[in-house]
Write a protein that binds this DNA or RNA. Sequence first.
DNA 1: GACCAGGCACATC
DNA 2: GATGTGCATGGT
Length: 211
Amino acid sequence: MNKSLPLIYRKLYSYFGPQHWWPAQSRFEVIVGAILTQNTNWCNVEKAIDNLKKRNLLKPDILYILPDRKLSRLIKPAGYYNIKAKRLKNFLKFFIKRYQGNISKMAFASTESLRKELLEVNGIGPETADSILLYALNKPVFVVDAYTKRIILRHGLIKEDTNYDKIQEFFTRRLKKDTKLFNEYHALLVKLGKEFCLKKKPRCSICPIKL
DNA sequence: GACCAGGCACATC
DNA sequence: GATGTGCATGGT
């Protein structure tokens, strides 16, 4: 009965192997994907991103001047397309005004101040901000999502009402602060969640981190 | 046809 | 401050 987070990581890694996250061809694509994937199946997000890519629109300055109505139509497969178009525009406005649409400039900011700035953008919450920090900017920030919470809740490691920041703290206090580790750990939890811990059909009896 | 998916903001009490 | 609700497509 060992519930140490490093051990769970080793079990997941040896079972599933490296996940190669985030699936994207550029850091900007990671950011767009992070916003589009809010409460949405990744397959649908890929369709939306492909719509932008094949029209050569996946660039900050170009996306920013694209009419909202057109952007909404192109990202339609990702669901919530009207609100997500606004959220993308909100981010782009911040990104261009504050960092001239330059990811390297943004990456140069301190993690704490940048996280605060991202959270001030309407439509970017803690998970989206942390996904951007970790997967686009390689900052050592642990990402918490619905799978993460569900898995450690079912293993009795936290209580139901534990909020985002507390869950994040739960991980960061018990793990080495390491970008590669945080990257792989979160990706592995998502993989596990998809394969074994679906809401309607929990298959935890054969779960590789049965504790 | 119900249920779910890599959230977030806002209204209301 | 906690609880409820709108946002929407596509796969199972």
